[in-house]
Design a protein around this nucleic acid. Structure first.
Lengths: 144, 144
DNA sequence: GCAATTTATTTACTTAGGTAAGTGTATAAC
DNA sequence: GTTATACACTTACCTAAGTAAATAAATTGC
């Protein structure tokens, strides 16, 4: 049939989110919440802008998820020197729980790609990165 | 960093949906609505179950999208011989508009993968299909 | 210094997708 | 034939992500 490629990308995106949500159930978290926690764990304190730029989503998406994470005690926000900014960081509770969660996610993701060799995973990543690139931007594939 | 693969799949899934939505704006449609119209155009009349099985989503997702498409006049539903089923088919209006929309989508999707060779596209599809497969199911990669 | 513009975040509203539970029809057991 | 079970669809409620517009702080122009 037609453009199976985007159909397939969409399918696997939903599948992986579903599996990650399942794995996160025991921690009362969702996949997009996890992506922010992961981000904060990697970079430390961040403004919301830094988060949505890194995750490549829109600002309102991050606002919503951050609010949920704050309510459930995973993160803390404080005002920046620039009072427009809100600086986000992990709560001690989150810092304590994170290693277990990270390991759980690692297992889940590894299971999903267990039928690919390391070389195939690498190649898949390279090919995916090419999507949406116009000629002039192609160098970013090699840099990223 | 960590499992870039799922991050990247997620990104490209969102990117392609965004681009398709943009292309569909002039027709007052959204990407998931299009996926159902495409499906009906390919297979003719279908029950809702056939649609969600083909698209690999849950029944309530299809119910919602179908209701929107019915309200906006793209599809018609009738009762099946089995009164539990609802048989869905394109409206004459949809049949008339579809070729233009299909061409528009084709262009959009082609642009997104314009920096991949045909061989790369094929390979990308094969690799994506391997995700989520356990050893015993791997034959499906070759059959699908 | 004050008005205009830019920037960071939020709010309101939309579609998309999931689960769980409800409704009504068809089928199986007996 | 009546009851129990299975099935198709729907409803209610949740998260995710997008756009557009509002808010409030910072910066720029003059």
């Amino acid at each position: 049939m037609r453009n199976l490629l985007f159909h397939e990308i969409h399918q696997k995106s939903r599948l992986s989110i579903k599996e990650v949500n399942e794995a996160l159930k025991e921690f009362d978290l969702y996949s997009s919440q996890w992506s922010i926690l992961f981000c904060l764990n990697q970079f430390g304190s961040m403004t919301q802008k830094e988060i949505w730029q890194y995750l490549n989503v829109e600002a309102p998406t991050v606002t919503r998820t951050i609010v949920r994470l704050e309510k459930s005690g995973w993160i803390v926000r404080r005002e920046g020197k620039d009072k427009r900014e809100r600086i986000v960081q992990l709560s001690p509770f989150a810092e304590q729980k994170l290693p277990d969660i990270e390991e759980r996610i690692r297992q889940t993701e590894a299971r999903l790609v267990s039928s690919l060799t390391d070389e195939e995973k690498e190649q898949l990543l390279v090919l995916l990165k090419k999507i949406g690139m116009t000629g002039s931007e192609e160098k970013d594939v090699r840099n990223g």
